[in-house]
Design a protein around this nucleic acid. Structure first.
Lengths: 199, 199, 199, 199
DNA sequence: AATGAATGAGATTTCATTCAT
DNA sequence: AATGAATGAAATCTCATTCAT
């Protein structure tokens, strides 16, 4: 484990856990308001209401904070997607697809700006194996779904579908759209159009 | 004109023009190699082979350099798309579509990392009206194409199609793909699938 | 509070207080030795024996340092003048006047060059309301004295008297005079001559 | 003659003279608008409408420009004072005094801010012998006047009177006063009060 | 465990001055 | 004589990180 991008210690006590979360939350809030440029450790500590020394008790570097936020968000998405596809054996293709798309939309529209920043950071950060595994797991959920639906080339198609959807949903989020129902319609159109092609 | 993100002066003499271009090229190269974090004015001047003072004769801030690169690239893409759709009245839908997609792919695969960085930067930079107009013009080319093809809701669909395509092509570029023919097939599939839905 | 000319934070701990004062003292010393041109943050930090980073913990800009010095000196003068005129009800006109003039002379001759520089800087700095209030308070002390002495138009005369005295004492200080007794004689002559006119 | 603060060459031709004056005028205007800090050679050249290269044809350094402005203004004042005291042998004390005071007031109120800046710069600049001679000549005019009036210690008193008057008129100018008649009354009061003391 | 004062490398930017054309 | 492109030393300021208390 690269010590430079991993938390120094996971909090054990109650108070420590609160501090730890406060730091991550502060960093997220700063990212949303001011973008990557505005993220600096002093400010994070200040917004979190802890001293800079305390911050460094938990995170050895600034990157570690960013990485941890990415990990958290990725984990949330993975969990939601797993829940969404949990029961695909007993559902129609469309039922599961809808749940997957809804999960993705909900995830992105929650903090559109943050999501966009994290995606960018992810692409240029030296990510930990563990975080990459999360991304792989996400891909697997979609690939599994396509496989189960009898789709050809599930790997490639899963990758492309996810990329395209991400592009669409990202743009909508950044443009300030909040009507997830309206967005869902267009997202569904994109997904089914793309997948229908191979039938 | 916000003085913070616009060139201080356009070069008049021959020598100055070369310097100006060298700076932009150096900045682009640095972005490709090291990402946004690696971009600093000292390094740009060094790579461009000019003094830091010279750099600041032309660009008042680092952001101005970034903005100018975005403007240039956007303009290139717009021009290519316009050429691609120039003759749509005498062509089939598919002929023009193929040319548009090819242009987009070529544009993105040329400098995938740079393209991604510029898109990100664009989303967080206070862009000039003029640069925003370029983006609007790009959208218009696609919307015009859809209109001409008798497609419903050309505006919304142009926006969505562009976003989705961008997501797909970006990801391919970042993943290191260089086979534009192979990518074209998948991109075409996405586009036609999405558009077919409305027919 | 204009963030550009006010201290970033007042020191809380003992060590910090010492640092804060060291910075102001260093700046003052530099001004005395080399004038406004010699004042730069690197040199101030160096002379103060702290790192440049530490300096910026307390003062966000160079101007903030200058402003704070002005504030301190103005406050000292105001306090001295107040003490000097404290007991005017029980003193003769001349007794109080002498004390006021002595205070002014002492103040100016202590650091003649610094005093001159600060006055100049003051005239071109966007001073805070608070600092302007100090100047007003100084004026009020003199105006009150004139009022108490039954002098006509105490406001205008206080202003003019202070300006003229300042001109005389400044010049003496800059010329290198150190004999405050000799200076006092001439200053007194100026003051009484000016005030006698209205009797 | 220190080459660093003297004009490189006095203009001979008509066009050159215009350029030379334009540079000095531009510098003066910049000083009035932005103070000493705003004065930089590139800006002076720009405002003067000449290239930076041309500016350096006439002035070897920035200081040379400032010095020349001071020289010009001092010379103007000296001339005016000489004219004012020209005929003192045939005039009453008061007549000549009034003319001298009026000249000083007119001089200062013309560009109060500029006058203040130049005085400050003068005090901290390594002035040329020639410029110092101008100052001495000014002092001599006043001292001669006092001598002629039979005043004791004309040197010391001339110095003090000039300093005090300068303080008063400066402050008035900086405060935005433009009514020279009103100012004259107060200035006269100061002068006569001061001088009466010795009778 | 927490604090916050302190550090200093390094980034941005200015501007007096030179020099090739 | 004039131009203006180019220089680079030096100034301002930031921020990730350390460490004494």
């Amino acid at each position: 484990m690269d010590p430079a991008i991993n938390p120094r210690k996971k909090p054990k006590q109650e108070r420590a856990r609160a501090t730890y979360e406060a730091i991550l939350e502060a960093a997220a809030r700063i990212l949303v308001r001011g973008g990557l440029d505005a993220l600096n450790t002093n400010r994070v500590a200040e917004v979190a209401g802890v001293s800079i020394g305390t911050l460094y008790q938990y995170f050895p570097t600034k990157q570690a904070i960013l990485t941890e936020i990415i990990r958290e968000k990725r984990k949330l998405l993975l969990d939601d997607l797993r829940v969404a596809s949990d029961n695909m054996k007993n559902e129609t293709f469309d039922e599961t697809l809808d749940k997957l798309l809804s999960a993705a939309i909900a995830h992105q529209l929650r903090w559109p700006k943050l999501a966009r920043i994290l995606e960018f950071a992810e692409a240029f950060l030296p990510l930990e194996a563990e975080t990459n595994e999360l991304n792989l797991a996400i891909h697997d959920v979609v690939a599994d779904f396509l496989t189960h639906a009898g789709h050809p080339e599930p790997d490639q198609n899963a990758r492309d579908l996810v990329s395209a959807l991400r592009g669409l949903i990202d743009a909508a989020g950044l443009a300030g759209e909040t009507d997830s129902a309206a967005l869902f319609t267009r997202v569904k159109k994109l997904a089914t159009g793309f997948l229908a092609h191979d039938q």
